[in-house]
Amino acid sequence: MEKIPILRMGPFLLVTIQVDLYDRLAENLESDLVQMVSKTGAQGVLIDISAVSIIDSFMGRIIGNIASMSKIMDAETVVVGMQPAVAITLIELGLPLKGVHCALNVERGMELLRSRIALTDGTPDDDADTE
């Protein structure tokens, strides 16, 4: 059975989705990732979806769910590398992924994660986009 690897990198978890996601795979990823966050006490999760070219409402919801779950487990989630077509599809489906931070590529995503963790470590997060 296919499985999406979850890599640990310092205080972060790295998930790169290299195949087109189908429903079962996505559901497994969701539960695996939450398990992994609790086991490692990761502070940030980075999901790379640059290889995903097709997305449906279910997948959009799963990504949103993962972000919300990690958030309540005190880990920031950043989705990186979304393709323009995927972004337009999500918007047209009415899924603007509120509460999920996005970045153009992995590099920017790591930067964003670091700055957000520095923020939460220091003064209380006063960013407007917290849910």
Binding site: V80, P84, I91, L97, C102
Partner: peptide, 12 residues
Amino acid sequence: IKTVSATRLMGA
């Protein structure tokens, strides 16, 4: 608003 949300999804 749609355009702005789409831009956000791209990380901008």
